[in-house]
């Protein structure tokens, strides 16, 4: 190891899970070897994975277990009601906040926040500007090559941490349209929370059966899981401080342990669970290639 201890973060749950499943998930994280846990809803303002009063309870338990807790905010903010929710989250977050839309930066300006993966920060000038507004950590957009992240890291504002999406189906796009409801011929305004039937999203296949994308409400993800567990040394050399693992419904404890092993044991080959989702692994973005590529 070259001196800097990388941290593990668990990203927000991107799917509509049952309340019980989500509570169990967070209870398990209290004992898991992770450092940071992101809570809250990023994808759909209609979803209520947990009740409003559940979140402080979950946060409290995680903080008692020594975890840093951060409240994530919605990526696509359209309605006044969504702005109002965002304002409430900012006001009650106690500076533990991930901004995923510029509306949050506008409202929270001056207070510390994490610049989330859905803010477009692609260069030094923008990163400096964001830091001047209170960003203390930057989660790189998923399509940025590691070389670009390293270049930004080399000139980073003092104290700014860099986090990279290291495991999970990649959040690629947002739309006004709910693709999950549409795939069931349901109107978005009367969706019946059909996405709750798909705890890892719905895999979209090409007509020659290649798993290509994942439908998750208004969000489109990759079908492949981006898995950077073999790239820890490169990530560390690039100045990355934190690896984000995006929750999935199965085998997540094993994923955490594999990453913990890769971080703590130089040169160790992590034992990884067999992928439970169609689509396998990908890591192309790291090298500036198509994200779907996989060098392994």
């Amino acid at each position: 190891m070259n001196g800097h201890r990388m941290k593990l973060a668990v990203g927000p749950i991107l799917y509509l899970w049952e309340r019980r499943a989500a509570l169990d998930f967070y209870a398990a994280l209290c004992d898991a070897p992770v450092d940071i846990v992101y809570l809250g809803e990023v994808v759909c303002s209609k979803r209520r994975v947990l009740q409003r009063e559940d979140w402080p309870m979950v946060a409290h338990a995680l903080e008692n277990a020594g975890k840093e807790v951060v409240y994530s905010t919605l990526a696509l903010i359209e309605a006044e009601s969504e702005l109002a929710t965002m304002v409430r989250i900012v006001d009650t977050s106690g500076g533990r906040l991930e901004a995923n839309d510029m509306a949050v930066v506008q409202y929270a300006a001056g207070r510390p926040f994490v610049a989330g993966p859905h803010l477009n920060i692609y260069n030094d000038a923008t990163l400096q500007w964001m830091a001047a507004h209170g960003a203390r950590r930057w989660v790189a957009p998923v399509e940025l090559p590691l070389a670009t992240i390293a270049a930004l890291g080399a000139a980073r504002p003092a104290g700014l941490e860099i986090e990279v999406f290291a495991y999970g189906r990649l959040p690629l796009a947002f739309s006004a349209r709910c693709f999950t409801a549409r795939s069931h011929d349901l109107p978005k305004d009367d969706c019946g929370f059909i996405c709750g039937n798909y705890p890892d999203g719905i895999t979209l296949f090409s007509r020659d059966d290649q798993p290509f994308l994942t439908l998750n409400g208004i969000q489109t993800q990759s079908a492949a899981v981006q898995n950077l567990s073999d790239n820890v040394a490169e990530l560390r050399a690039a100045g990355v401080d934190i690896l984000r693992l995006s929750p999935q419904s199965r085998d997540f404890a094993a994923v955490i342990h594999a990453f913990r092993t890769a971080l703590d044991t130089t040169g160790a080959v992590a034992t990884f669970p067999e992928p439970s989702l169609p689509g396998g692994y990908c890591d192309g973005y790291l090298r500036g290639e198509a994200g779907i590529e996989h060098a392994g």
Binding site: L76, L172, A173, A290, G291, I292
Partner: peptide, 10 residues
């Protein structure tokens, strides 16, 4: 906010 094209083509 769309990375579909870079995911497929770079």
């Amino acid at each position: 906010r769309c990375a579909l094209s870079s995911y497929a083509t770079g």
